[in-house]
Design a protein around this nucleic acid. Structure first.
Lengths: 129, 129
DNA sequence: CTGGACCTTCCAGTGCAGGGGAAGGTCAAG
DNA sequence: CTTGACCTTCCCCTGCACTGGAAGGTCCAG
């Protein structure tokens, strides 16, 4: 199939597919005599994997690592497990950071809600922030 | 004071201060005969405000809005309150999204943790993702 | 044989908040 | 007089994952 069909079949765009090829996530596609890219079903499976990886918030670099392991003939299960564990820890840290930030912002907002603009001094930009 | 002193006094860099001036967060500074920027104490207060805004995860554009209101002679309290409320809602949404994502990744990780690499078929990249 | 849908490559831009570094001017100390 | 610290403008680079658009080639239906 050609690039447009593959894009439609995997819910992405031709732009993205060429970008993935440049980024090393897709093997350079075979070409028709006219120079058009030609893909087989394996490309669909590969893109489905990439999509699942993206859905799990893995970066393209991480997904490529997994694909590289697979392309070298090894089962990437172990690598995927490590990746997911790392991602999980990062997500926990990120959520904790955001919750802390939320508490700070909520505190500021509580102080500002009920404030009287007329009592603002001109020597500072805003006493509520 | 000169730009390096101001940077040291506010815990930032000269690069950032020039960037803020370009971005409209700082008024164009006065210049010495040699062309050096010259700042007063008000610049320190302004940068402290910017720093607090950044700490509350406001964007530079949002902070500039507040400063613009202030510069036009109005107390920005009300504007700040709205901004904080909006930021709070965005943070809640972001935290909820991340928690959902975390659940998904945790599920994948649980499935992968106990898996046997030898049972992986070659027809897919990895059955755990 | 022409129109339109598709394909190719290449270059540039998006958003965000700066950072790196070059080429050159200024100032005070030694 | 020179050294070194500081300042100036200028332009490009970073990360991340694309997206937009121009200029041109290919293919098929009418």
């Amino acid at each position: 199939m050609r690039i447009g069909e593959l894009a439609a079949a995997t819910g992405t765009t031709t732009k993205t597919l060429r970008f993935y090829e440049d980024a090393g996530l897709l093997h350079p596609a075979g070409r028709t005599p006219a120079g058009y890219r030609e893909y087989g079903q394996d490309a669909v499976a590969r893109l489905d994997f990439i999509r699942r990886g993206r859905a799990a918030s893995l970066t393209l670099a991480q997904i490529r690592e997994v694909l590289d392991v697979r392309d070298q003939g090894h089962a990437p299960c172990r690598h995927v497990e490590d990746l997911l564990a790392t991602r999980l820890r990062a997500l926990d840290a990120q959520i904790a950071d955001l919750q802390e930030l939320r508490a700070t912002v909520a505190q500021l907002h509580d102080a500002a809600r009920g404030g009287d603009p007329d009592t603002c001094g001109a020597e500072q930009v805003c006493r509520y922030l």
